[in-house]
């Protein structure tokens, strides 16, 4: 039982990073822009957020790590938003090929992070000392079972993530903004004909993916990398995994949540093999477990892609003149 608690406690910070980034991808793709750049956006958010933490933890604020986390999150979200604008500019205004632009943006961040970290921090990235870890939340942590699952040995990120999921779902389904956004990804000309500005909606979609991607990247740095970000390992393909999560989740928020939990579980399992007697007894090289999330992605995609329903206008630059 303790192992189960351990797995779930460790899974949630991973899941929340995947969830937020996949939700970001969903907003972008449902508005009609393929966002391969999520990996780069994540690392950019993670790095800028950690740099912010690095400087602010030297001020008197250092006694309140959770406050720093929230501020760092806002900074990371803004960084992600700014960076995603490079994609919007190219994909929406310049009508460039979205996959290639995304690849370029993914390559730009690690190079920039390495260059500046090597020159200013004399290492591959930025290392912070603030401890964001929460051993136990008072009161809530004492609830039997649930308290142990969700309110012990955890990070603030998972509650913020849950809140953002609720907000994103409401925004996506219950507001006219969400409806307009989805229309632009399905049939932009029809949307245009009823007075929706397709360019603006796509900017909004990509911008939201930047905000969520940057936040998710920072949460990755906090929850998985222990407050560090570096240019070599980056975010270890989480941006791409998030894309797979999004496809597996059929571009729908709640299904994305389930998919994110599934992938996070696999990854946590891979890194906790030594703690689980049953798996340890099998004596399989740990690298196989590390490959598991990627292999699972392939298997899942192989089974779901035939019937997957991607947004119809995704990847096609919108041109008013073409009907």
């Amino acid at each position: 039982m303790d192992i189960l608690y351990y797995l779930i406690q460790n899974m949630l910070p991973v899941a929340v990073a995947l969830l937020l980034v996949a939700l970001g991808g969903m907003f972008s793709e449902r508005s009609g822009v393929i966002n391969i750049a999520l990996e780069g956006i994540m690392l950019f958010g993670a790095f800028i957020g950690c740099v912010f933490v690095f400087f602010i933890e030297k001020t008197p604020l250092k006694s309140q790590p959770q406050m720093i986390l929230l501020l760092g999150m806002v900074v990371a979200a803004l960084a992600g938003l700014l960076y995603s604008m490079l994609l919007s500019l190219a994909a929406i205004n310049m009508k460039a090929d979205q996959t290639i632009v995304g690849t370029a943006l993914n390559m730009l961040v690690p190079a920039g992070v390495l260059l500046f970290s090597k020159m200013f921090f004399f290492s591959d990235g930025v290392t912070t000392n603030t401890n964001f870890y929460i051993r136990k939340i008072p009161l809530l942590g004492d609830i039997p079972v649930l308290g142990k699952l969700f309110f012990q040995n955890t990070y603030l990120t998972i509650y913020v993530g849950a809140l953002l999921l609720v907000i994103a779902t409401i925004l996506f389904y219950k507001t006219s903004f969400g409806l307009h956004l989805r229309a632009c990804g399905e049939h932009p000309h029809a949307a245009d004909s009823v007075g929706i500005n397709v360019y603006h909606m796509r900017y909004a979609g990509v911008g939201l993916s930047g905000i969520l991607g940057g936040t998710g990247g920072f949460f990755y740095a906090v929850g998985i990398m222990n407050g560090n970000a570096n240019g070599h390992t980056g975010v270890a393909g989480f941006g791409f995994l998030a894309l797979a999560v999004m496809i597996f989740g059929q571009w729908k928020p709640l299904k994305i949540l389930l998919a994110a939990l599934f992938f996070a579980f696999l990854r946590t399992l891979a890194y906790s093999v030594a703690l689980i007697p049953f798996l340890r007894a099998l004596n399989i090289n740990q690298t196989y477990y590390k490959m598991l999330p990627y292999v699972a992605t392939m298997v899942v995609l192989a089974f779901t892609s035939k019937k997957s329903r991607a947004p119809k206008a995704e990847g096609i630059p919108y041109d008013k003149g073409m009907r």
């Binding site: 190219a90 460039a96 090929d97 290639i100 632009v101 370029a104 943006l105 390559m107 730009l108 190079a111």
Partner: peptide, 9 residues
């Protein structure tokens, strides 16, 4: 990376 970015245009 920037060359790729602009090549996409």
């Amino acid at each position: 990376a920037i060359i790729i970015y602009f090549s996409a245009f």
